[in-house]
């Protein structure tokens, strides 16, 4: 790949959904690029189309206008060789054990049984799930389930990891710990992460760049670069003022989305 082609390029994408009161414009004219190794967070009020945007990157949602390029090639559908996705609902297969869930993507790629079992087993230890390999999803806690889902995404070892509010359904404490743990994974694997959230704390603690989206139809409102080193002291003057600034922007959009 030539260095001047960004790993992910979103070019003027738009999406409308049909509804009973006519088509609703979910996102309009969004353009952005994400470079290799970035941790890019998309934040915005509910219903601003951030999940739609992520779905477009994943190849799960077709664009009505514009296009998405990954490594210079237009996205036409899911590409598990380049992109892995984690959803808010972990979507684990209830008839598979934790280990078998982690193996899923490798299985679809035709990796031999022994090999994929090895990869999945090696992944479970850093996920803190070594003792839970043979447990079924119903026997795991919410945080564990989400870690299995992340393991499933990491197993196919893609350059890009998309995460759609992966910790949204977890309690505050678990959420913070999962964030720290994800940061650790990201720093070791140097994957490119696009992370959708509505949590200010997550955005500031994790991202190298934060993209704020407007209320519907979602457009890009502002972009915040965060060069601060990790792990970040969230109480530092620097981050406290950044937090206030970010909150100001999101507050405005949230008010607008509540007023409609």
């Amino acid at each position: 790949m030539t260095p001047n082609v960004p790993l992910i390029a979103v070019e003027r994408v738009g999406k409308r959904y049909p509804s009973s009161s006519g088509p609703v414009e979910a996102i309009a004219d969004v353009s952005l690029t994400v470079g290799e190794g970035e941790f890019c967070t998309i934040i915005g009020p509910s219903g601003c189309g951030k999940s739609t945007l992520l779905g477009m990157l994943a190849g799960l949602v077709p664009c009505d206008s514009g296009r998405v390029l990954v490594a210079g090639a237009p996205v036409t559908g899911p590409d598990p060789r380049r992109v892995a996705t984690v959803f808010q609902d972990p979507g684990l297969f209830p008839w598979r054990t934790a280990l078998e869930n982690v193996e899923f993507g490798l299985e679809l790629q035709g990796v031999p049984r022994d090999r994929r079992r090895q990869v999945a087993t090696d992944l479970l230890a850093p996920l803190g799930l070594a003792r839970f390999a043979d447990k079924y999803p119903r026997e795991l806690s919410g945080g564990m389930r989400q870690r299995v889902a992340i393991g499933r995404a990491l197993a196919i070892d893609t350059a890009i990891l998309l995460m759609d509010e992966p910790f949204g359904a977890l309690d505050e404490q678990t959420r913070v710990l999962m964030g720290e743990w994800l940061l650790d994974i990201w720093r070791r694997t140097r994957k490119t992460v696009v992370f959708v959230t509505h949590s200010l704390h997550e955005a500031l603690a994790l991202s190298s760049r934060v993209i704020v989206m407007t209320a519907r139809p979602g457009r890009i409102k502002s972009v915040l670069e965060l060069p601060q080193p990790y792990p970040r002291a969230m109480e530092s003057a620097d981050l406290v003022s950044l937090r206030a600034k970010l909150w100001g922007e999101i507050r405005e959009e949230s008010m607008r989305s509540m007023e409609r």
Binding site: L60, F87, F93, L108
Partner: peptide, 24 residues
């Protein structure tokens, strides 16, 4: 959601059928 996940991991319709729909 299981169907969405399987699609994201590249499952084609027949794989979706055998590995997701049938067991579910």
């Amino acid at each position: 959601q299981l169907v969405t996940v399987a699609r994201a991991f590249g499952a084609r319709p027949h794989v979706l059928f055998v590995k997701v729909m049938l067991p579910a």
